[in-house]
């Protein structure tokens, strides 16, 4: 027994340095590119950030391939979207990596859904006859900029625990990220005279318009919120139930999806209903990600005259979406039809 322990100890000391070789800063691995973009902004040059999903793929349908296992093997921090988005491949990657520091429950495992507002948590027991419904809520929460803001703080907090010496820096980086996000959300001019946190509070209370008009600043709303203002209250159609958070934040209503049920491709019967509905309610926008086929949207657009907006919902999904803020910029400009 002693001999075996010694052999293992010798092997461990021989291998140990190899494992840590070249690990200067922290290594962060995220499941999606959006989390990677926010993590990069928070970590600055103190960490190397890599994403498993590139932004051009659907994070729900990945294969636990050897390259992913290698990335997880070397990670100090694993950040996931959670809410079962990665359920088909995450555990084989974490198991395969043999990295006990990033397993669920460990300090090196951050589930970003813990720190955000989650929508569409089923109030009744779900069955799979409802399609691919996520029982803990809709996982596409990064499309609400407020959640992006929350994620940055959660990442800074966790990085601070992993590297206490740089905790203040991570906090400062997160604050800078929030500041730029607030400027894009409300317009730089408004954020100059109003605290971003206060504006968000008013947004979440639904009293921003009143608050600003009372302050005589109603015309000062710029940024994404300003650009989206003309679309407030409008109904849209989306391909998948992936735009709920974006729609909710900017006051749009998703009246229907092209998919009859989440994860089930459009059927002719369902599309006929969607066309009826779009005609009856005068719906003018069909919103979908580039990786879905455009056939169904084309059909509905043909019959109703609605405008098809194809835009990625992930960083890296299109050339312009280089980071989180650029992604939101791109989505807002596509939906509003302004280049």
């Amino acid at each position: 027994m002693k001999t075996i322990a010694r052999v293992v100890a010798v092997m461990a000391t021989a291998i140990g340095p190899l494992v840590n070789a070249g690990a200067d800063g922290l290594k962060i691995v995220t499941t999606t590119s959006d989390l990677a973009a926010i993590a990069s902004a928070v970590a600055g040059d103190k960490a190397e950030v890599r994403s498993i999903c590139t932004g051009r793929e659907d994070p729900h349908f990945l294969q636990a391939k050897p390259s992913y296992i290698m990335r997880a093997r070397d990670a100090d921090l694993w950040i996931r979207i959670g809410l079962e988005l990665e359920i088909g491949w995450e555990m084989p990657v974490l198991d395969g990596s043999r990295n006990r520091h990033i397993r669920p429950g460990a300090k090196g495992h951050l589930d970003a859904s813990e720190c955000v507002n989650v929508l569409e948590i089923p109030a009744i027991p779900v069955t799979r006859a409802m399609g691919d419904v996520h029982p803990s809520g809709n996982p596409h929460y990064w499309l609400d900029p407020f959640n992006g803001r929350c994620i940055a703080v959660a990442i800074a907090e966790r990085l601070g625990q992993l590297a206490p010496a740089d905790a203040a820096l991570f906090k400062a980086n997160a604050a800078v990220f929030q500041q730029s996000l607030d400027e894009r959300m409300f317009g730089a001019e408004l954020v100059k005279s109003e605290d971003g946190g206060r504006l968000w509070l008013k947004v979440r209370e639904g009293t921003l318009e009143k608050y600003l008009s009372d302050a005589g600043k109603a015309d000062k709303i710029g940024g994404w919120l300003g650009a989206m203002r003309p679309l407030r209250g409008k109904k849209i159609i989306t391909y998948h139930r992936s735009w709920s958070y974006f729609a909710d934040r900017f006051g749009l209503t998703v009246a229907a999806e092209l998919e009859p049920k989440p994860g089930i491709p459009p059927s002719p019967a369902h599309l006929a209903e969607v066309i009826e509905l779009a005609k009856a309610q005068g719906i003018g926008i069909i919103l979908q990600e580039p990786f879905y086929s455009r056939k169904a949207a084309d059909l509905v657009a043909d019959k109703t005259g609605a405008r098809i907006v194809v835009v990625t919902n992930s960083v890296g999904g299109e050339a312009e979406a280089i980071d989180y803020l650029a992604l939101m910029d791109l989505i807002v400009s596509r939906i509003t039809g302004t280049p």
């Binding site: 955000v116 507002n117 803990s136 604050a175 929030q178 946190g197 968000w200 509070l201």
Partner: peptide, 28 residues
């Protein structure tokens, strides 16, 4: 009554625990 501004404006604050979050707690 509106939540206090101080609590909300520090971005580190998590959103207030809603009923749905409690449901989530039970699920986990």
């Amino acid at each position: 009554s509106a939540p206090t501004l101080a609590a909300e404006s520090t971005a580190a604050q998590k959103p207030p625990l809603s009923e749905s979050a409690m449901v989530r707690g039970w699920r986990s």
